[in-house]
Design a protein around this nucleic acid. Structure first.
Lengths: 215, 215
DNA sequence: CGAACTATATATAACAC
DNA sequence: TGTGTTATATATAGTTC
């Protein structure tokens, strides 16, 4: 709808999709609000991102609008059909189960545990997916590792500075011995050391920075 | 938002309000649909005009989205006193939802779409998993491709044999011309050709047999 | 990333029929 | 009330930082 017209179909590029999602979501919510204000309408809007995150808007109360919707669509609100809710839940559950089974299968295939039935074409698709995944994972890992290395060198620099400072203070103390300020300096050193990321596992022997395929 | 900018507050003029309502309502629904398509989001939109008329849209099923919303908001607003069965189903469903969410997350991580929060250790684990997956997938692919190649060469051998057979029969026919047995041979050729795996896509230009990382 | 910035595509207020 | 037209306000795709 700008720079270039786009086709209305699922956006393949992941980050582009996320950006578009938050932009358009905001736009949609704004429009919904405007409509409810301008025309005195009662509106409820629910949006689930593909990551499962919920965003909702309601001109009044969400529950109120849903109740009203239920009244309209069927007579669900009262217990005409005592088990209609149950039926709903059941069908819902069936669906959930199916989805779960599907995801489980996909997961197993990605892990290479269920490849017998697959065609060459499917395998090629899978391979592409995995290569994409590994590329992104490696990038993320490198990024984190870089961050840790930077943290370390920054801490080392701090350490040197503090030691120098400490030394200077000690010298000063020698010249005019008053109170024990040296303990304060040690405190500073300790608190800055606590900033080291906890998740950096030093027991891992190799810190590979490149792609996992050396040749 | 055109000819003249308008203030976002209730439109006094009744007919103008109605016109605006139907125009903007259509626009809103269109946007909602576009968002759900582009970003693979699940959306429910309910609009009540001030005359009490209901308009709604849902990317999947309205009830489904409402259920999902209820799960999120933890308020199961449908019934005051849910039956034992319903409670059971609901808890069951909650569990399923959690499992599904977990699998979805894992899947996204394998695809490299949700790596922000991960520690180096987790990323290393993920990488290992992906390398394992890609190894097995490549093996499976190679196996399938080998099979296809073997099928092809076997068919070629058969073809040669049959052509020779055919030729011999023709020669024999020339010497003692009786009945047309040649058509029978053609039948054999056709039936063996039908054994070529259907899923082998010859439109794919490259038939890579090695690992997908050339260097 | 996310925020900011265009250049365009869309949506729509006012008007006409 | 519905439909169509038009001039303008908005929304937003692609891009930059």
């Amino acid at each position: 709808m700008t720079r270039q017209k786009i086709e209305i179909k699922k956006i393949d590029n992941i980050s582009a999709r996320q950006v578009t999602f938050s932009k358009r979501r905001r736009g949609l919510f704004k429009k919904a609000h405007e409509l409810s204000t301008l025309c005195d309408a009662e509106i409820a809007l629910m949006v689930f991102s593909n990551t499962g995150k919920l965003f909702d808007y309601s001109s009044s109360s969400m529950q109120q609008v849903i109740q009203r919707h239920n009244l309209h669509s069927q007579e669900l609100g009262l217990s005409e059909h005592p088990s209609i809710e149950l039926q709903l839940e059941l069908s819902n559950q069936t669906m959930l189960s199916k989805e779960l089974a599907e995801k489980t299968r996909e997961l197993r295939q990605l892990k290479g545990e269920e490849l017998q039935e697959m065609t060459i074409k499917d395998l090629q698709k899978l391979e592409k997916l995995l290569v994409g995944g590994i590329t992104r994972v490696s990038q993320a890992k490198n990024f984190q590792e870089d961050r840790v290395l930077k943290d370390i060198s920054s801490l080392k620099r701090k350490e040197v500075q503090l030691m120098e400072e400490n030394w200077r203070l000690k010298q000063a103390q020698h010249l005019t011995p008053e109170n024990g300020h040296s303990s304060e300096c040690i405190t500073i050193v300790c608190s800055s050391l606590a900033d080291i990321p906890q998740d950096y596992d030093t027991s891992d022997t190799s810190l590979k920075l490149g792609l996992p395929f050396p040749d």
